[in-house]
Each structure stands twice: as structure tokens, then as C-alpha cells.
Design a protein around this nucleic acid. Structure first.
Lengths: 282, 282
DNA sequence: AAGTGGTCTAGACCACTTT
DNA sequence: AAGTGGTCTAGACCACTTC
């Protein structure tokens, strides 16, 4: 940490330790996730200087990504972080508030700031946009129809930024709301870590795939980008969902990424929308 | 303005003038708030005390809603607002930042803070989620097929929170991307002000209905809630969109509201999704 | 040069949770 | 009582825009 936006900070007024491990002497301060003092205001314009609070935001993010603070755990208090990074509490606060606004952290007055998790109740519906036309939103149950390693077809590989034929984990499942099959999901997961997943480990998790992946693999899905279309049900799809061949279905194609923005999941969900709908707020 | 969160502010420590035109005597300490002193910490729990910055946020919102500052215009500087409300600049900043995060205001360094408008280029795609499968996002052209006053059917009335049979403006239009018809919109608008709209006034606006409404009627659409479904094209719909009868179409049902959250528009859009798709970020 | 938003600091007190 | 986040203040300097 330490360093200037572009030049923003003033260096004269206070006698701050300008460099690297900055606070090496102080008692409580531990080691910052990283350091690399980017101080030279001029000359190096390549990495684009950032305001202090942005640098701290990045540092906290790295702390989460590296596992120093994992999902559901509390991160150090604002005062601790301020001491660790040698900035004021207000600057830390600004970084933390930005991360909270992005759903990365959750603040709880009087308790602390926590790394958000897919296991939390409030996170359940962020990635599940299907709602019954009537009645309250509910969690679906999941039935795994297939789960195996496979080679990525060209279109899947393109979406996941990998090479065609590379090894991926393929999952096909059926989500049912109140005993009625509603979604037929085809899921491709790119990455070594997913090899450990099996149909058995996925069973009995009521469709909360991201919570399972987070808990068992430590991989956290951060954001997703979806494309929606209306399509006709093929024979097999119609059978699985209990509709007539040719019925209109909502196709939801999702590409999900973790930190760093690299895509790790491609999902194609076919949804019956006769008694459910997809919700969105603009 | 004036008043405390729940009790938040301290009233003893400094000799603050608790009421009205406050500041006048003390040099630096100035005074707090300015208006209706809602100070009693206890006893009155009904209106739910709000933090100062929230009250100021509401006050600014009212300024926009009342037309004191209209879409596209600049609001007073942070310092001016701070003086007006008798709070510190930082408190005003927090209110303004919150409004900017909600797309109500747009801040421009060195220039000022502006009331956001549907006329801005950056706002164009917030309510238009349809994108071509290939190529860059483009604005559609609009052809008005129908535009007349009518009585609200039961389902429309329910969505708009009005009584069945009440007078509404009905618009049917066809949106075309690159000369190809893609969306068939049925739109119902509730409110006296919409009586002034005619097919002529809507023509030649390339489908930017909200920009027209904002400019000509002063009504600003703030947020919308959508429900998506896949349906089959009826004969008439198929003809209008140039697809075969029975083709799958994406039905987007949108309820849009202005300030205060009261719904003013119900829209049902039927979209061909063979060469376009609906995008969403989670 | 003046005015605007953008960043940062330092310190105060309040409200909530836990010990 | 101690610790955490939540609100508020006052003042500094930086960066951008306009005059």
C-alpha cells in the first residue's frame, strides 16, 4: 500500500513511512497482503495510478481471493486495517463500503465486516431469478441427471476462454419447484478444481450449486452475465420438463466468473414459464 | 431539514443553535440543520428518524421531483447545498453520492452535479436490454401502429394500481433493428399528463419513448420491474414480426414507475430472439 | 484565477453487539 | 465495559473545467 493516486497525496505534511513493509516496527500490525510502493508520481504512467482507497480495495480483494479471509469470515476492523495500511480509518471505510456495494463484503453494525458467502440466505436469490407466478419465492430441489468429465465443444470453449477439446466437468440437472420440474440445466465448469465434484457430492444440496462449490472447493462465483432467448422445446427437453414437444421455453445462457473476471462456468438453462417467470429490476 | 437520525447527533458538547436559521453567530462551529427540528430523541417513533444525509437525500429528491432542478440541469454545488441545509459538505456529499449510485444524479469533476436524463447517451441502454447476437448495440427505429385513449382492462388496471375501466393511453408500436422488426410493444400509460401524447408527437423519435415523455411532459421514469416469459406467437403477432405462427417469442412485461414508486406504465413487449437476445448482469 | 467535484485526514459521538 | 460499524464535522490539498 502507500502510494499516490496520480499524485494526489501530499508527502510533506506528515512523516509517513513511504515505502514497502511500512509499519514493520509497530506492535499489532501484521504484514500487508502485499506492498509494492507505487510512489513515483511521475514517470511511470503504465499501471495507472489509483487513489489510495482503490488500492486498499484491491488489497482487501486480494486478501479474500488468497484465502486469508474466507467466505463467511470476519475481516479485521476498520481501525486494524487503517493501521495495517497506514491510512486513515475514513479511507479504509471508503474501500470497504465500495466492496460492500459490490456484494463482496457485508457490514454488520456492532459485529464486524464479513466476507459474503453463497451460503447466506440473503445471497440465495441473487443468481436465481425464477419466481412462481403466485406465492412466495422458494428454493428448488435439484436432481442430477448427469455428471462427468468431458471435452469442451467449440461453442462452450469459446464462452469459457479455453481451447476446444479441453477437459471440463459437465453436469445436467433438473430443478423442480414444489415437485414440478421447471428448469433443465446444462452446466460446464472449467478448471482443475472441479474434477473433485461428483454426482454424489452434488446430491441433496437443493440446487445451491454455488454454495457447494464455495464450501467444498473454495471457489467463489462472483458475477455472471446472462443472455435470454425464447426457443422451442426439442423432444428430449420436452420430456424432461413434462411439456409438449415444440412448447416455448426460456433459454438462459449464463457465463459466470470468479475473481479476476475469468469465466469458469457456462450454463444453459431451459425454463418452463407457464407457471414461473424470470424477474429483473432495472 | 434539521433533526437527528434517531438521536444520533450530540446537542450538548458544542453550542449549536438547534433550530431554524441557525448559523449566524459562531465563527467556525456554524450550526446544524435548518428546518423542522425533529429533535426529541425518544417518544416519537412513528416517522422513523433518519440520518441527516438521508434527510438531505430526500430533500434533493424532492427538489428534482418538484421541478426545482429538472432533468439535464445542474444542481447547486456541494458547498451551496451544505450552507442551505446547514450541514457539513461531507454530509451533503454522502447524500449526493447515494443519489448518483441510484442513477438519479451524475457527477462531473470540475463542472458540477447534474440531474440525469433519459436524453443522455449513457442512459439509452439502461431500459433497452435487447442486443444483436453479433455486432455492436444499436438504437432501434420505431413505428407507431396505434395510439389512442382507452379504458384499462382488469389486468392492466391491477398492474398500474388503478381501477378497471379508468382512462389510459394505449400505444402499440413496432421496434426495428436495422430494418428488421424485432419487438412488438403494447404500452399502457396511466395519468392525465399522457393525454397530450399523439402518434405524431411520438413519431421520429427512434423508439426513445422515455426521452420524449421526459422532454415533453416532464415525467421521468425512474425504475422498472420486469417479468420475462417464453410464449408462442399468435397469428397477428407473427405477422407483425415476420415470423411463423407459433414461433417462440420472448415476452417482457414491464411495470415502470416515477418518483414515489407509483406505477405509471405497463408494457408488454414481444421479442423475436432469433438474431437478438436480452442481456442481464448479475 | 475561480469554482467544482475527488481524495484524504483526524477526531468526535452514537448505536449496536458481545463480554 | 469494550469493540465494531454508523454518522457527522472541519479542514486540507488535488484534479478538472471554465473564465
Amino acid at each position: 500500500m502507500r502510494a499516490h493516486p496520480r499524485t494526489h497525496r501530499q508527502d510533506a505534511p506528515d512523516a509517513r513511512q513511504p515505502v514497502g513493509g511500512a509499519l514493520a516496527s509497530a506492535p499489532p500490525p501484521a504484514a500487508v497482503p502485499a506492498a509494492s510502493p507505487v510512489r513515483t508520481p511521475a514517470a511511470c504512467a503504465a499501471p495507472r495510478f489509483q487513489p489510495l482507497y482503490r488500492q486498499i480495495k484491491t488489497a482487501i480483494l486480494q486478501g479474500i481471493e488468497s484465502g486469508e479471509w474466507s467466505a463467511g469470515e470476519m475481516i479485521p476492523s476498520e481501525m486494524d486495517l487503517a493501521r495495517r495500511f497506514s491510512v486513515s480509518q475514513g479511507t479504509v471505510r471508503k474501500a470497504v463500503e465500495a466492496l460492500a456495494a459490490e456484494n463482496m463484503l457485508a457490514r454488520r453494525q456492532g459485529k464486524g465486516t464479513y466476507v459474503s458467502s453463497h451460503r447466506e440466505a440473503r445471497a440465495q436469490f441473487r443468481f436465481l431469478r425464477l419466481r412462481p407466478d403466485e406465492g412466495p419465492a422458494t428454493q428448488p430441489s435439484s436432481r442430477i441427471l448427469d455428471c462427468r468429465r468431458s471435452r469442451a465443444p467449440a461453442d462452450v470453449a469459446r464462452a469459457l476462454s479455453i481451447r476446444t477439446g479441453e477437459s471440463v466437468l459437465f453436469i445436467r440437472r433438473l430443478l423442480a419447484f414444489e415437485e414440478t420440474p421447471v428448469v433443465l440445466d446444462d452446466i460446464w465448469l472449467a478448471g482443475e478444481e472441479f474434477r473433485q465434484l461428483t454426482a454424489e457430492r452434488l446430491a441433496n444440496h437443493s440446487g445451491q450449486l454455488y454454495a457447494v462449490i464455495e464450501s467444498e472447493l473454495g471457489t467463489k462465483m462472483i458475477r455472471a452475465s446472462e443472455k435470454l432467448r425464447a426457443v422451442c422445446a426439442s423432444e428430449g427437453q420436452a420430456d424432461a420438463l413434462g411439456v409438449e414437444h415444440g412448447s416455448p421455453l426460456l433459454l438462459v445462457e449464463r457465463v459466470t466468473s470468479t475473481f479476476n473476471g475469468l469465466p469458469v462456468e457456462l450454463r444453459r438453462g431451459l425454463c418452463r414459464t407457464d407457471r414461473h417467470h424470470y424477474v429483473n429490476e432495472l
